[in-house]
Design a protein around this nucleic acid. Structure first.
Lengths: 324, 324
DNA sequence: CTGAAAGCGCTAACAC
DNA sequence: GTGTTAGCGCTTTCAG
C-alpha cells in the first residue's frame, strides 16, 4: 500500500496525505482528521526507504553491543537495550544493532553503516580514555551520545553524554555503612587509570573523615576474594568493604571468616547480587537509555543548534540486602 | 558518494558497477576486479534505501527484546544478540530491535515494521503454546525463525526453529550425579504445561531407573528455596537436586542444612551460577543465534523453496562447579 | 558484455 | 489549501 492508495481512499491528492503526515499545520483541520482516519483504517505506514531517499534521514539509531567479559558485571546491556528500543520507538526511531571488538573495527563499522543504512545517530557505550570513536564521529559532525562520560579533559571531548554518578553510588554505600555503625570501611577497586574505577573509589574516599584502607586489582571474583582476604588479614579493625563491582564483592563475600562478620557492598546490582543477597549500588539503566534517546532526538530535531553537548548525570540508588 | 561516482572513477558505466555488485558473473573478470578495486579505494557502500526501493529487500532482520523477569534466568539475551548481530553482519544483514510486552502488541509492531522498514525476516524468542505471533507470520508467508520449539502439535506449527535440547541438559545433569554416586536425585521444576519446563523435567525423569521425587513451583529463588526445603524434609534419602533454572537452584542451595550435603545443579549457566559456584547446564547461545541467521539467510536466498521448515536442536553442555 | 531508459514511494518545490 | 512536477540512488528491463 502506498500513499496513492490512501489519497484515493480519502478522496484527496497524494500531497495532502504527505502534508498531513509531515506538515500537519498546512492542512485544513477537517481534511487532516479525515485523512488520518483513512490512514488508521487502512493501516498505512509510510515506506521508510522512500522517505529516507527524499529526506536523507533514516530514523535509525545504531548501537554497538560488546561481548561481556565475565558476564557478571557486564550484564547491563539487556536492560539498557530494552529501554533504549522502547524510548526510541516512542520518538519514532528504531534501533540498529552492530558488534565491534575494538575502537578501530567499530569505526570501520560506522563507515559501513553510514554508507548503507545511514543511521541518524549513534550511541556509544563503554567510553574510555582516548576514545577513537568519539573523536572520529566528532570530526565528521555525526550526531551521537555516549553512555559514559568522556574520561579525558581534551577540549575535543565536548559531546552529549549520559552517565551514572559512580562516586555518588559509593558515597551512598559508605554512608549506609557509617549509619549502621561501621567505623573502619575498606575499599576493593580496580587499578587507577580507568575513569569509572577512579570515580567509584573517589566516592568512598571522600565520605570517610580519615583515609581508609584499600586494595586495587583487576576485576573478577577470584581477584576480589584474594584482595579482600589480604586486606582483612592486614587490617583487623575493618568491618565493612565497599567494592567497585559485584564481581569483586562476590569474591569479598567468600573471603570472610565465619567468626568475623564483614559487611560487603557491591556495584551494579547484577542478577548475581540479587541471587546471593548482596547489597549493591543500583544503576538506573532504563532512565539512562531514555536520556540517551531524548538527547539524540532533540539534537536531530534541531540540527541548526550547532554541536549539542548536553550532559545528564543520573544518581544511582542503593539496593539493600542481607550483606550489609 | 553514489554508484555514478564509482563508475566515473572506474571509467565504466553505472550498470557495470551495479552488475559487479549484484551479478558478478555477467562482468568480465578484468573489469570486475578493477571496479572492485575502485569501490574499495573509494570506500563506496551501496545505499540500502535505494536498493531496497528497487528490490523490496531491506537486508534487515528484526528481533524483539523482552524485559527479563527476575533477571537471573532471563539474562541470555545479551549473548544471543551479540552472536546474532555478528553472524547476520557476515551474511550481509543487520539487526533491527523492537520491544513488545505480549503477543498482541508484538504483532502490532510487526505491522508497523513491515509498513515502514520492511525487515526481510523476524526472529521470535520465548515461544509458547498457542503462539499468536507464529501463526500471524505463517498466515502471511513472512519469513521467520523461532528460537525455541513450537510447543504445540498443530500442523500450523511448521516453521523453522532453533532450540536447545533441554531434556538432554537435565539428562546430562542427572547422569553426572549418578556417576558421582548419588542414588536419590530429586527435581525442582515449574508447574506442568510450559513446554520448556516439561522438557527439562522429562530429561531428569527418563534418566532415573525408578521414579524420583519432585516439586513444581513458579520460578524464583524464594520459591526454589521453600520447594527444596519441603522436598528435602519429606525425603531424607535425597542427596542431589536437579533444577529447571538457576533461580530455583540458587534457592535450593540456600535450603541445604549445614550437616546434610546436597548436590545441586541448575539450568542456564547464568552469571549468578558462576558467581556462587553452581554447577549448571550451559546453553550454546552463540551457536543458536548463528543457526537462526543461517536458516533465515538460506530461506531468503531461495524464496522459491516454499515454506522452509528446517529445525536445529542443539545440545547443551554441563558446566561443573563446586555445587555438584 | 556494456550503455540508455524506466520506475520503486516518497517529499520539497512550485503553480493553481 | 490543494494538485502537479521532479528526483533521491539504485536495479532491471531492453538495445547495442
Amino acid at each position: 500500500m502506498t500513499i496513492t492508495d490512501v489519497a484515493k481512499a480519502a478522496g484527496v491528492s497524494r500531497q495532502t496525505v504527505s502534508n498531513t503526515l509531515n506538515s500537519p499545520e498546512v492542512v485544513r483541520d477537517e481534511t487532516r482528521k479525515h485523512v488520518l482516519e483513512v490512514i488508521e483504517r487502512l493501516g498505512y505506514r509510510a515506506n521508510q526507504a522512500a522517505r529516507q531517499m527524499r529526506t536523507g534521514r533514516s530514523r535509525l539509531i545504531a548501537i554497538g553491543i560488546e561481548p561481556d567479559g565475565d558476564g557478571i558485571s557486564g550484564s547491563w546491556a539487556d536492560r539498557f537495550l530494552h529501554s533504549l528500543s522502547e524510548t526510541a520507538a516512542q520518538e519514532g526511531y528504531r534501533i540498529l544493532l552492530y558488534t565491534a571488538a575494538d575502537d578501530r573495527s567499530e569505526i570501520a563499522t560506522y563507515e559501513d553503516l553510514l554508507g548503507a543504512y545511514q543511521p541518524d545517530a549513534f550511541v556509544l557505550t563503554g567510553t574510555h580514555h582516548d576514545d577513537l570513536r568519539a573523536s572520529w564521529l566528532l570530526e565528521r559532525g555525526l550526531p551521537f551520545v555516549a553512555f559514559g562520560r568522556p574520561w579525558s579533559d581534551l577540549p575535543d571531548a565536548r559531546h552529549p553524554w549520559v552517565d551514572v554518578d559512580g562516586a555518588a553510588g559509593t558515597e551512598a554505600a559508605t554512608r549506609h555503612l557509617l549509619a549502621t555503625g561501621h567505623r573502619h570501611i575498606g575499599f576493593i577497586g580496580w587499578p587507577p587509570g580507568s575513569g569509572v574505577g577512579d570515580d567509584r573509589r573517589e566516592g568512598w574516599a571522600r565520605t570517610l573523615s580519615s583515609p581508609g584502607v584499600q586494595r586495587a586489582v583487576e576485576d573478577g571474583i577470584a581477584a576480589g576474594e584474594s584482595a579482600a582476604r589480604d586486606l582483612l588479614g592486614t587490617e583487623p579493625e575493618v568491618t565493612a568493604l565497599v567494592c567497585a563491582s559485584d564481581s569483586l564483592a562476590l569474591g569479598a563475600l567468600q573471603a570472610r571468616e565465619p567468626d568475623r562478620p564483614v559487611a560487603v557492598i557491591g556495584f551494579d546490582d547484577t542478577p548475581a547480587a540479587r541471587a546471593v543477597g548482596l547489597t549493591s549500588v543500583h544503576q538506573p539503566l532504563g532512565e539512562a537509555a531514555a536520556a540517551c534517546v531524548e538527547l539524540l532526538a532533540r539534537a536531530l530535531e534541531s540540527p541548526d543548534a550547532g554541536p549539542p553537548s548536553a550532559h545528564v548525570l543520573l544518581s544511582p540508588s542503593l539496593t539493600i540486602r542481607q550483606s550489609a
